[in-house]
Structure formats: structure tokens, C-alpha cells
Computed example of a mutant assay.
Amino acid sequence: MDLLVRLYDLPRYDYSRVTGQGTTLRRALPPERGMVADWVETHFSRHWRSEVEVAFSHQPIDVWLATDATGLLGFACGDVTARGFFGPTGVLETARGRGLGEALLFRTLEDLRDRGFAYGVIGDPGPVAFYKKKLDAMEIPNSKPGIYKDMLR
């Protein structure tokens, strides 16, 4: 099932948990397109690479990055698979547990809200309980998990 998030009612998020660790959250820059797309394909999937490339074609770019002195740690996209959708998103295995995924989630959803979306959709989410707890996300009745993957066939 997909989840619906009220963007006009997002909880405030304290970014100091990640920025206090020396992590920067920022919108990707145009010259980073190839590097970020390669990184996403290497660490996640070719399908996600395609979505990242679409997000780079938007103005403003719909790719948010988590970086530190070692380089790229995670990414999140918005408004790519369909209008108002969150994702794909991913964090390096070695960087998980530091709150980066949550920070990227909130930053991406805030951006969707700031661009005029009242609601966001999290399609075929993995950690449903997490999204419900953090965002008060609601299940969309009769939505079909994996329907987006089926569209690729």
C-alpha cells in the first residue's frame, strides 16, 4: 500500500542531530549529476539511477544529498515517480543509524510543501510503522504495492 502525508501539517524537524555530526544536507548541483547518478547505481540500483537523472532535470533540482568530509552518504528525491511522490531515497550501509535517512525524508517533504503540494505520497514504502510514527502518514485504501514496478514491464 502507499502512504499519504499531510505536508501542510509536517512536524518540525531538528536537523542538529545530523548537522552536529559534521553532515551537510543540501540540494544537489547540476555538475554533480553524473557523479550522483553513478553513485546511486553502484550502491542501490539502475532503476533508482534513472529516477535520480529525472530529478536532476527539474528546476529546481529535486535531489537532496547528505555529505560529510568523506563524500556522499545518502540521497533523496521528490516529485519523480509521480507528482508529489517521495523517493527514491537511500543511505550508505556504513552511514545508517545516524538519522540521515530521516533528515533527508523531512528535507524532501518540506521542499514539496514549499513548492505548493498539500499532500505527499510515499509509494510502496518499506518501514510503514516508521512513516506512520514520524509523519502521521495514512494508508491509502486500495493502493497496490509494487504497481510502479509493474509499470516498467
Rank of each mutant, 00 (worst) to 15 (best):
L3I: 02
L3Y: 05
L3D: 08
L4V: 03
R6M: 10
R6W: 13
R6A: 14
R6Y: 13
L7K: 00
Y8T: 09
Y8W: 15
D9K: 13
P11Q: 03
R12I: 07
D14H: 12
Y15D: 14
Y15L: 14
T19C: 09
G20E: 04
G20D: 02
T24K: 05
R26D: 02
A28Y: 03
A28K: 01
L29W: 13
E32G: 03
G34V: 01
G34N: 09
D38E: 11
D38F: 08
W39R: 04
E41F: 13
E41K: 11
E41D: 12
T42A: 14
S45T: 05
R46W: 10
H47D: 14
H47W: 15
W48A: 03
R49P: 02
S50I: 07
S50D: 15
V52E: 11
V54D: 15
S57H: 13
P60Q: 04
D62C: 09
D62I: 00
W64G: 09
W64N: 07
W64T: 03
L65P: 03
L65K: 00
L65Q: 04
A66G: 06
D68Q: 01
T70D: 15
G71K: 04
L72Q: 06
C77W: 06
C77L: 07
C77G: 07
G78D: 07
G78I: 00
D79A: 11
D79Q: 11
A82R: 10
R83G: 12
G84P: 06
F86R: 00
F86Q: 01
G87S: 07
G87E: 03
P88K: 02
T89E: 15
T89G: 15
G90S: 05
V91H: 10
V91N: 09
L92K: 07
E93S: 12
A95L: 08
A95T: 00
R96T: 02
G97Y: 08
G97M: 09
R98H: 12
R98N: 09
G101T: 01
E102A: 12
A103D: 07
L105H: 03
F106T: 01
L109M: 11
L109D: 03
E110A: 05
D111L: 01
D111G: 10
L112V: 02
R113F: 13
R113Y: 12
R113Q: 11
D114E: 10
G116L: 06
F117K: 02
G120M: 07
G120V: 00
I122V: 04
G123D: 12
G123T: 05
D124K: 00
P125R: 01
G126C: 07
A129F: 12
A129S: 12
F130G: 06
Y131C: 07
K132S: 12
K133I: 00
K133Y: 14
K134T: 05
K134H: 13
L135V: 02
L135D: 06
E139T: 01
I140V: 13
P141C: 05
P145F: 09
P145D: 06
G146W: 04
G146A: 02
I147G: 15
D150S: 11
D150N: 09
R153K: 10
R153I: 06
